[in-house]
Amino acid sequence: MATTPKPKPLTGQELLDKVTSMENVDRKEKARACGYVTYTKNGQERVNLMQFNNALLKAVGVDLDASDENGSRGRAPTFRVSVHKNGNLLIGAAYTKKMGLKPGDEFEIKLGHHNIKLERID
């Protein structure tokens, strides 16, 4: 059984133009008209509203999946850490990466009144 190739959903300016031209149509119909439809194994149509909404956001310049300047997609460091139940104080990879530290770098720990200062040993 041959299947016809599924057309690619509209993106970018083409998507914006199509949606703008359909201003009096509900969102589900707009998504369908722009190609954001899949079919289940038993042939039922499924409109992919989430993909449609994400494509619209991207078309207007909002990328929800954007990475930070280093290409990382994780959380941004808050520069706050807490002591673990076992008494260890862990400095995460985000902090060491931001400081340009490499495995084997050594520090001297200096205790202040309400702080801990790490001084790199050259």
Score class of each variant (00 low, 15 high):
I109W: 01
N48M: 11
Q51I: 07
N70C: 01
R80W: 10
N54I: 02
R120L: 11
K85I: 00
L16H: 01
H84Y: 08
I121H: 08
E119F: 09
K98A: 15
R46N: 10
L49A: 01
D105A: 05
G71L: 01
V19T: 04
H84R: 11
E14S: 14
L101Q: 02
L56S: 01
R32H: 09
V62H: 09
V25L: 12
T3E: 14
G61R: 04
P9A: 13
A76Q: 14
F52E: 00
N88M: 07
K28N: 11
P7C: 05
R46G: 04
G112L: 03
A31C: 09
K117R: 15
S21K: 13
A59P: 00
M22W: 00
V25T: 13
N42G: 13
T20R: 14
Y39P: 02
K102M: 10
A55E: 02
G12Y: 02
K30C: 06
L111F: 12
G43M: 07
T78G: 07
R32F: 12
R46E: 10
K8I: 11
G43H: 02
H84K: 12
C34W: 01
A31F: 02
E108A: 13
L101D: 00
L49Y: 03
K8F: 04
L118T: 00
L111A: 14
I91T: 05
R27E: 15
G43R: 06
N48E: 13
A94N: 13
Q13W: 02
E45M: 10
